[in-house]
Design a protein around this nucleic acid. Structure first.
Length: 665
DNA sequence: GAAACTCCAGTTTTT
DNA sequence: CTGGAGTTTC
C-alpha cells in the first residue's frame, strides 16, 4: 500500500501483482492470504492478519474477500487491539477480570490520572504528560514495581506513584485501558504456557501490516504468537516510520531478522503510484537518512511534471495562491477529490479553509474531533458501560448528573467515603442500606432511585432486544430534552440526536450479528468492540462527496492523490522547531518522504518569506530539505523569476471569485 | 447556572 | 493573535 517496503515470505506466492497504489504492501498481504487458503490449503480459521487501524483492517478484509473464491469463514483480520481484546476475553478469569469489563479510552484514562494526581499533590496541567509517561512505561513493558524501583528524580517518582494508583483503580473498576489490550495478552502468555500454546495453535499463520509502527509490547505479542514455527509475513517500510514519538520502534524490523533467521527479505521497489520525478525526489531526500535496508523506488510511468517550489510573500499569499490554483486546475477537468493540501500541524488548515470558502470550493478537513469524543456519545457510552459493568466508577461519575439528578459533590464525596470503607464500587455502595450512616434521607433516596433504575434497565437488557431497551432508556432519562437544553442551536441539537441515533443503529447491527458459532454477542461484548471502533471512519467511507482534502502529513500516510500541495516548507515548520531541538531530524525527513510519496502526478511545495505567528510577523527560511531535492526535477516560482504573470492571474481570479460569492448571497 | 473574565500555550495521534 | 480552560461574578 505504501511507496515501498520490505516483505518476508515463505514459499513462492503465485498470485499476480495488482498494480494500484504504492508498491502494493496490502496487496502482498491479501495475495498471501489467498495463496495460503487456496494454494497451501490452510484452514482460514487459523490465519490471523493484524493491522493498526480499523480502516486498514476493513480494506484488507474487503480485498481478501474479493481475491479468495472459496470460503473464508473464521479468517481473522483485525487490529492489534481487537486481537488483544479477543485474547483477553478468552482468558479473562485468569487475568482477574469479571464479565462485562470496561475499556477506558484515552479521555477516561486522562481523567482518572488527573484525579489521582490531585491526591498525590501534583500540578494539574501535568496529567497529559503523566498519561503519556505511563503509557510509555506500559508499552515498554515496565511494571509498577519496576517503575517505582527505577525512579530517580522526584518527577519519575511521582509518575511511578500515579502509575501504581492508576493500575489499582483500573482493577477496582474492572476496567482495562488501550495499552492493556496488548500488554495483558503478553503477560498472560508469559505466565501460562497452556494459554500460549492454545493461541499458537490458533495461529498457524500470522501476517502483520505496517511493522515499523509496532512498539515493544506489540512486537512481543507477534513474536509469541508466531512461536518457533515462525509462519509469518510482515510488511513495513522503515522510511515511513513517523510515530517514534508515541513508542513505535522501527528497529523491530531489523530485530525480526535476528529472531527469525529463516525469514526471507523481499524488497518492494517498483512503485505503481507516482511519476519518475516524484520518486526521484523521494529517493533523493530519504538517501540522507542512514539505512539498514537499502532500496530505491522506480517506476514504469512517465517522468511527469517537474516538482514546483513556490515562494510566497506571506501566509495569506500562500493560502490564496493554493486555493486559486486548485480552482483554475479543476476548471481544466478532474475532481476536487484529486487535490490534497498537506501540512505539519492541524492549525495550519485554517487559512486554507478560509481561502477555499471564499472561492466556494468544497473541502474536507481530516482529523479533529473523533466520533467518540463527542459529549452525547460519551454520555451514552458511559451509560452502556455502567450497564455492562456496575463497578465502572468512571462511567458512574460521568452519568450521575446527566441529565441533572440533583446529586451534588458533597453527596458524592460521602458516597465515595462509604464505598472506600466497604471496598465496593460507587454504584454498589449507592444501593446498600449501610449508606444511611453517612448520608441523610433525601440524598440517599436519589442515589437509590438511580441505581435501582439501572438494575431494572439491566434486567430488561438481558431479555429484550438492545435497541428497544436503549430507546426506552433514553426516553426515561429525558435525554432528548436534556440535549436540547445543552445545545446552542436547533441545528446542533439535531446533529447530536443524529449522532445518538447512529450509535444506536450500530449497536443494533452489532448485537444482531452472529459469530461463527451462530451466537449473538451480549451487550458487554458489543460495547467493548464499539470503544475500539472509529465510527467516524465508517461515515467517511460512505461519504463519497467530491471535496478537496486537507490533512496533516501524518494523517496522509497510506493515502494517495493525483495532486499534492505541501505547505510552509520552512525551517521550524518542516522540520519542526521541536524536532530541530530534540535532534529528530531523521523522523522529520521521513515525514517529508511520506508526503512526497502521496503524490501521483503533481507535487507542489510552498513557503512564505514572512509569516504572522503569535500575533507578530516573522521572517522565514526555506526548509533545509529544499537542498536535498534533486535540482533537475524542480522548478522555482515566485522568487522573482517567473512570478508576475502568474500572480496577476491569481489576483484577478480571486477578485472574480469574491464578487461571485457576493452575488450568491 | 450562565456570562464575563483571566490566563496560558501554541506538532504529529490510533486504539 | 487565537481558542480553550478555568475562575469569578451576578
Amino acid at each position: 500500500m505504501e511507496g515501498s517496503g520490505k516483505a518476508r515470505r515463505l514459499p513462492r506466492c503465485p498470485y499476480p501483482s495488482t498494480p494500484g497504489g504504492g508498491s502494493g504492501k496490502i496487496s502482498l498481504i491479501t495475495r498471501k492470504i489467498a495463496w495460503l487458503i487456496e494454494g497451501a490449503n490452510y484452514d482460514p480459521a487459523k490465519i490471523i492478519a493484524v493491522t493498526f487501524t480499523n480502516k486498514a483492517a476493513r480494506e484488507m478484509a474487503e480485498r481478501t474477500r474479493k481475491l479468495v473464491g472459496s470460503d473464508t469463514r473464521g479468517l481473522t483480520i483485525s487490529t492489534f487491539h481487537n486481537l488483544g481484546l479477543n485474547i483477553i476475553r478468552s482468558e479473562q478469569k485468569r487475568l482477574g477480570l469479571r464479565g462485562g469489563f470496561s475499556i477506558l479510552d484515552s479521555d477516561d484514562s486522562r481523567k482518572l490520572i488527573n484525579e489521582l494526581m490531585q491526591r498525590e499533590g501534583g500540578d494539574d496541567d501535568m496529567a497529559d504528560t503523566v498519561q503519556h509517561a505511563i503509557s510509555n512505561l506500559k508499552n515498554d513493558m515496565l511494571s509498577v514495581e519496576q517503575a517505582l524501583a527505577m525512579a530517580k528524580s522526584p518527577r519519575e517518582m511521582l509518575i511511578a506513584q500515579v502509575y501504581e494508583g492508576y493500575e489499582r483503580a483500573k482493577s477496582a473498576y474492572n476496567a482495562v485501558d488501550f495499552d492493556d489490550l496488548i500488554l495483558k495478552p503478553v503477560q498472560l502468555f508469559d505466565q501460562h504456557r497452556d494459554a500460549l500454546e492454545k493461541w499458537q495453535n490458533r495461529t498457524r499463520y500470522l501476517l502483520v501490516d505496517e511493522y515499523q509502527d509496532t512498539n515493544l509490547s506489540q512486537y512481543r505479542l507477534v513474536k509469541m504468537l508466531a512461536g518457533v514455527r515462525a509462519a509469518l509475513t510482515v510488511v513495513g517500510d522503515d522510511d515511513q516510520s513517523i510515530y517514534a514519538w508515541r513508542g513505535a520502534r522501527p528497529e523491530n524490523l531489523v530485530q525480526l531478522q535476528e529472531d527469525f533467521p529463516q525469514l526471507k527479505v523481499v524488497a518492494l521497489e517498483q512503485n505503481y503510484r507516482s511519476t519518475q520525478r516524484i520518486l526521484r525526489a523521494a529517493n533523493a531526500v530519504i538517501a540522507h537518512n542512514p539505512h539498514v535496508f537499502e532500496k530505491k523506488l522506480w517506476s514504469d510511468l512517465a517522468p511527469g511534471d517537474p516538482i514546483r517550489l513556490v515562494c510566497c510573500k506571506d501566509e495569506q499569499h500562500e493560502a490564496d495562491r493554493i486555493a486559486g490554483e486548485i480552482v483554475s486546475q479543476k476548471a481544466r477537468g478532474g475532481k476536487w477529490n484529486d487535490f490534497a493540501v498537506l501540512y505539519r500541524g492541524n492549525f495550519q488548515s485554517r487559512l486554507i479553509e478560509e481561502k477555499l470558502r471564499e472561492r466556494q470550493v468544497p473541502y474536507k478537513v481530516s482529523g479533529g474531533q473523533s466520533f467518540f469524543a463527542r459529549a452525547e456519545i460519551k454520555d451514552l457510552m458511559a451509560y452502556l458501560r455502567l450497564l455492562a459493568n456496575p463497578d465502572d466508577d468512571t462511567a458512574f461519575l460521568r452519568v450521575i448528573n446527566v441529565p441533572r439528578r440533583e446529586i451534588g459533590p458533597t453527596t458524592l464525596e460521602k458516597l465515595a467515603q462509604y464505598a472506600g470503607t466497604r471496598h465496593v464500587s460507587l454504584a454498589t455502595a449507592a444501593g446498600e442500606l449501610g449508606l444511611a450512616e453517612f448520608l441523610g434521607g433525601q440524598y440517599r433516596e436519589k442515589l437509590h432511585r438511580f441505581v435501582h433504575w439501572l438494575d431494572d434497565v439491566r434486567q430488561r437488557l438481558a431479555k429484550l432486544p438492545a435497541k428497544q431497551v436503549l430507546n426506552e432508556m433514553l426516553d426515561e432519562l429525558g435525554y432528548e430534552a436534556w440535549l436540547r437544553s445543552q445545545s446552542a442551536s436547533p441545528a446542533a441539537w439535531q446533529k447530536r440526536m443524529d449522532n445518538v441515533q447512529s450509535l444506536l443503529d450500530s449497536i443494533h447491527r452489532m448485537s444482531e450479528k452472529e459469530d461463527d458459532q451462530g451466537a449473538k454477542p451480549d451487550i458487554g461484548e458489543v460495547i467493548a468492540k464499539l470503544v475500539l471502533l472509529d465510527m467516524l471512519d465508517q461515515q467517511e467511507e460512505n461519504d463519497d462527496s467530491d471535496r478537496v482534502q486537507l490533512m496533516t502529513l501524518h494523517a496522509a500516510k497510506g493515502l494517495e492523490f493525483p495532486q499534492v500541495w505541501i505547505l510552509a516548507f520552512e525551517e521550524e515548520v518542516l522540520p519542526h522547531r521541536n524536532s530541530i531541538e530534540a535532534n529528530t531530524i531523521e523522523e522529520e525527513r521521513r515525514l517529508l518522504y511520506v508526503g512526497i510519496t502521496r503524490a501521483r502526478r503533481q507535487l507542489t511545495f510552498t513557503y512564505a518569506q514572512k509569516r504572522k505567528q503569535y500575533g507578530e510577523m516573522n521572517s522565514c527560511t526555506p526548509s533545509r530539505f529544499v537542498a536535498e531535492l534533486p535540482a533537475a526535477d524542480i522548478v522555482r516560482e515566485g522568487d522573482g523569476t517567473t512570478a508576475s504573470a502568474e500572480q496577476k492571474t491569481q489576483s484577478r481570479d480571486a477578485a472574480l471569485a469574491a464578487l461571485d460569492a457576493l452575488f450568491k448571497k
